[in-house]
Amino acid sequence: MTTSSTHNQTSWAQRILDGDRRSLAQVISLLENQEQEGFNILKELYPHTGQAHIIGLTGPPGAGKSSLVDRMIQEIRTRGHKVAVVAVDPTSPFTGGAILGDRIRMQRWASDPGVYIRSMGTRGSLGGLAQAVYATVQLLDAAGYPYVLVETVGVGQSEVDIVQVADTVVVVSVPGLGDDVQVSKAGIMEIGDIFAVNKADLPGSQRVIIELESMLDLGSHGNWRPPVIPTVATTNQGVSQLVTAIQDHYAFLKENNLLMEKRLTRQKESVLQRLTERIRKDITELWTKEHGSQIWQDLAAKRIDPYTLEEQLYLNWKGGNTVDKKD
């Protein structure tokens, strides 16, 4: 992309504010690739952020998240709002490639100017991905989408990080995945503000609902008791209730001054993560410049252990003298 040569940053930001979807898409790529130019544009647009309700959806593969998102788009459009979707699919750790297939379920909205859908691969870097998703969400917010849905596969801690860029987290469950021990052990269950039991027309769904309800009865939730909502994405059953529950949760956050608090935590985390990443780069670059890449070979050959190496890198960066010597 020949960004800087053909346009200045002002016009990028302005074009995004004017609703130019091509510019929006290209700047998302810059953010996804962690290019500084993208962040410069985001800086300019930052005053326009904070308007969107950011909704995270997670759940096991095959739970019907994409189909549910498709129905949620329909419901939100019916209620007269624009909506953007960020759909995250796993990148192969072996080849770096990815098949981004969530869009298939939502492709009927491709020509609707009130809907923007973007697919993203996880690209291996966990903290980095959460940052890329967060930056993209902010850009979509600034671009004037009042609802931003982030869909991700619910496996592992990294996914928990991603959905926590959201104001409201919807955990999607389905019948047939195990007993109530699964419900209580899965970490992902602790982050849900709303639980959707999709494929609720299948046998066993009532049991999942009861198990979720009893798990929620045991926990402490402050003043928000997460609702459990049966849905059938294929027939649109329960989708209206789900969207209403999502709006209720947002109203609850606002009324109790929790929204600002939640967002500040996220912003702090974003600053710290970016800072950590920058310092990490600085430290390794400084060492490589001074000593070459020999250390990694030493590490591979066990001439040094990772713990001593970390100390050496840190002390080298700090200039050695400023850190108290161990006795």
């Binding site: 990148t91 192969s92 080849t95 770096g96 490639g97 990815a98 098949i99 981004l100 297939g101 869009r103 298939i104 697919s119 691969g121």
Partner: peptide, 9 residues
């Protein structure tokens, strides 16, 4: 995908 590309289908 196996060649390292991101494929939107």
């Amino acid at each position: 995908r196996d060649a390292g590309m991101e494929v939107v289908y």
